[in-house]
């Protein structure tokens, strides 16, 4: 839209900016549509079928798959196990990750900070299966942990954590801790030193400064870390299966079984979407509660 002397009219300029924005966004959103929404849409479609749509069988629609939790009450226990794993893992990551992030952000700099960061990011670069199987070496009876303990205290009873609830949590915390440290680090590093000095000059000692200044200002990082961890953890199946053994029956493993073992794709898809709904409800409720408490942040 050009005026007669060739310059862009304000309206023309606006339209051009919109086009530029659209052009910049297009590749990302087309890829997301293709790679995420299409398969997700297909899964949503499957979840209303009676049987997986393979072969020449006619399509039969049903709502039965979504009644799984009513028909098979043991699934509620399984879901509760998953949520417990999610809460424990997220909680422990917060408990370990937040202090580490604050220490990294506020007490280290330069080369030592880089090295410490590398150590934190290392689990990201390790293959998941390798990581989990290394933990079996450590946690099994007669494993590294057991051996080390008996070197120190020969008369101690043997520790066999493998195939237990704690083993699953240990594996998951190891895998997901970096998320928590990185998100909390970003929040903690943004805290101005002058806030701390101001609080101290007003009579606050270190514990009070932590409770009233550092913790509240790190909260955005803590919350995003919690979301980043909780969601994948309650759907995880590798750690529960390998480190949990018979204990490790979670929604993740049940859903995986439906796809890989039972070949009941519709049920697996329906369970996935049910879990998704539960997660969304949990975050809807908690984000509302949090924004009421820490509104203007």
């Amino acid at each position: 839209m050009r005026s007669e002397n060739g310059t862009l009219t304000p309206r023309g300029r606006l339209a051009r900016r919109e086009w530029t924005t659209a052009a910049l966004l297009a590749p990302a959103y087309s890829w997301l549509t293709l790679a995420v929404f299409l398969p997700l849409g297909a899964m949503l479609f499957f979840s209303f079928l009676k049987a997986a749509p393979f072969g020449a069988r006619p399509l039969q629609f049903t709502f039965d798959n979504y009644l799984a939790f009513v028909r098979r009450p043991y699934l509620i226990d399984v879901a509760w196990t998953s949520i417990q794993i999610g809460l424990w893992t997220t909680g422990l990551c917060a408990l370990v990750g937040l202090p580490a992030a604050i220490a990294l952000a506020r007490a280290t700099r330069g080369r030592s900070q880089q090295v410490l960061f590398l150590l934190i990011v290392l689990p990201f670069w390790t293959n998941g299966l390798v990581r989990v199987f290394s933990w079996t070496m450590v946690l099994r009876e007669g494993g590294v942990l057991d051996y080390a303990l008996h070197l120190v205290a020969p008369s101690a009873p043997s520790v066999a954590l493998l195939y237990s609830f704690p083993a699953i949590i240990i594996g998951l915390v190891h895998a997901y801790l970096p998320y928590m440290i990185l998100t909390c680090y970003l929040s903690a590093a943004a805290i101005d030193d002058a806030y701390i000095e101001a609080a101290r000059s007003l009579g606050a000692r270190t514990p009070m400064i932590f409770a009233k200044i550092v913790l509240p200002l790190s909260l955005p990082g803590l919350i995003s870390g919690a979301i980043l961890i909780f969601v994948p953890v309650i759907g995880s199946f590798m750690e529960p299966r390998i480190l949990g053994g018979r204990v490790g029956v979670t929604m993740g493993t049940v859903i995986e079984d439906q796809f890989v073992q039972a070949f009941n794709w519709p049920l697996g898809a329906a369970l996935s979407f049910t879990m998704l709904a539960v997660v969304l409800i949990i975050f809807g409720v908690s984000s509302r509660a949090l924004s009421a408490r820490f509104g203007a942040q």
Binding site: E197, A198, S201, Q297
Partner: peptide, 11 residues
Amino acid sequence: MVFQSYALFPH
């Protein structure tokens, strides 16, 4: 102390 950046607690 009044800081150059004011250092008001943002939360």
